[in-house]
Amino acid sequence: MKNYIFIETPLGKMTLAEENDYITNIAYGEITLEASCENETELLSQAKQQLAEYFNGERKEFNLPLKPSGTVFQLSVWKALTEIPYGKTASYKTIANKIHQPCAARAVGMANNKNPIVIAIPCHRVVGAKGIIKGYGGGVDKLKFLLKLENITDVEDFPIKW
C-alpha cells in the first residue's frame, strides 16, 4: 500500500508518495492514488525536507530512493533525466541519443510529460532544439519558477516571456 502526504511549496500543494521504501510520486496538486493511505513515513519526511532545501536553494541533488512506474522506454528516459546536472538543460534529441533511440525525440517529450516524480526526476531541465521551451506538464508558471530557481538562462523565450 502506498503512503502519501500533501505539502505546501512555493509552487502550491504537492503530493508525495512512497511504497515499499521507494518514492513513487512527487506531483503538483493533491492527487488521488489508488490503494493508498495518508501517512507521513520517515521516507516521506526525508523527501519533504529535501524538497524544502531545494526550494530554499540549499540542495542541488536529491538523495532519495526513486521508483517511478512506467514503460521500459519511459523508465529509460526518466533515468537519463536524473543525469542532467542542476542548472543545466538538455534537449529532447540529446536525451533520445543518450538512450540510444536517436529518432525518438517526440517520444522523449511524451515520456517527459508522464514523469510521476517531478523535480527529483528533473523533467523541467529538458528543452527543445536551440533551447526553445516547448511547454511543461505542470504549467509554464511552474517551469519559469524552476528555471529561475536553478539560474537556467540558456533558453529562448518561446512561449515564455521573461
Rank of each mutant, 00 (worst) to 15 (best):
T82V: 00
I31R: 10
K114P: 03
S45P: 07
Y22E: 12
M110R: 13
K48W: 12
K144E: 13
N39L: 11
E156W: 04
N97E: 14
P65T: 07
L11E: 11
F158V: 14
Y28S: 11
Y86M: 03
E18H: 08
K88L: 00
E53V: 00
A120M: 11
K144V: 09
K144S: 14
N113D: 14
T71G: 07
E30V: 11
M14Q: 12
I117T: 00
E34G: 14
N112Y: 01
M14D: 09
S91E: 02
D157P: 04
F6S: 06
P10A: 10
A52F: 06
P159Q: 02
Y28C: 05
L147A: 05
A35L: 15
S69P: 01
Q49D: 14
K148V: 01
A107Q: 15
A47G: 10
Q46W: 11
L44M: 08
T153I: 05
P10G: 04
G57K: 05
E61I: 03
E38I: 09
K48I: 04
E30N: 09
G128P: 02
K144I: 10
W162F: 11
E150A: 00
K98S: 11
L147D: 10
Q46D: 13
E30D: 10
K79T: 14
L51F: 07
E156S: 11
I121H: 07
Q46S: 14
A111T: 05
N3T: 09
L11G: 00
E18M: 01
E8T: 07
D21C: 12
